[in-house]
Design a protein around this nucleic acid. Structure first.
Lengths: 150, 150
DNA sequence: CAATGTTTGATTGTGCACAATTAATTGGGG
DNA sequence: CCCCAATTAATTGTGCACAATCAAACATTG
């Protein structure tokens, strides 16, 4: 009687609203858009911001280490890092002890963005309407799911 | 004493592991990779699969309606739909009653993929290690977050 | 009906994202 | 020492993703 307005029987598992992945896909893109105005003020894209988060903490990392932490491969990172190198945010050089590795180092211009980025996380949490407890709980679930998928 | 191996004081809010967005970003990409072998068997990408999910349910939708439901704009959808049109999965034509609108219609080739896709959601849930209750709870949280962001 | 503003897709340009391939380098094992 | 498998980036090609712009069609108002 109160069936949906479809003409034929339709497998409910194949409805968009019942998909597992779509909410993650949509939330991820919406979150990136939410970051965008803050990052645009720093001239950064979201993946570039992630690279800087790691460099602010570690100062030097190889392309491989960045890829392992961000789950991105060199086909994504190499051109992204070259663009950031052109802006003097970071340096790229071969490791003399292993010429296969490329070491990415934070430059002063990149370090200077750290201060300007300091209040971005807080503003994002406010926009998302999450308090720190909810955030921690959600992050735990997502991290567990991520571990099961990788 | 047990401080991390950083040289200077570092704002913990700017550590990657404490970010809100990164787990969503990473999980979303990992989920897409998890779908990939199943979708590759149908010759589909993940966004193309989402379009078909909607068309399997609704048969006909305008580009605008697809964009509203998937939160994608025409710059993403137009070339994607043209590729699917070339494969005879769907048709694209102007609405005679409003020539601004483009109506996307499911073609038999696209309908035929529905049967082949039927067990994808179940296999994905198994791989993610989620049961239906966990899934429903997670989806509720994500949908609420999405509503707050849009 | 004419002027005006709105809606809708398409186009353009930039930047990810990743599979597949290539190339250089390294570290062993014989 | 030399061959050989493994490691690491870079390259290439395809396909999203989105901002900005444009153009066509429609709706509304006077």
């Amino acid at each position: 009687m109160q069936s949906p307005p479809t003409l034929a029987a339709h497998d409910p598992m194949l409805k968009l609203e019942n998909q597992l992945c779509f909410p993650f896909y949509a939330v991820s893109r919406q979150l990136t858009k939410t970051y965008q105005p803050y990052l645009q003020a720093l001239g950064l894209t979201y993946p570039q911001y992630l690279v800087l988060l790691l460099l602010w903490e570690h100062e030097q990392l190889t392309v491989k280490e960045l890829g392992d932490r961000l789950l991105l491969d060199s086909g994504t990172l190499t051109p992204l890092l070259k663009r950031m190198e052109q802006r003097q945010l970071l340096s790229r050089r071969r490791d003399p002890r292993d010429e296969r590795s490329v070491v990415i180092g934070l430059l002063p211009t990149g370090r200077a963005l750290e201060a300007q980025a300091r209040d971005i996380p807080g503003q994002l949490l406010a926009k998302a309407g999450l308090d720190l407890d909810e955030l921690a709980a959600l992050r735990t679930q997502l991290t567990q799911l991520l571990a099961r998928l990788t």
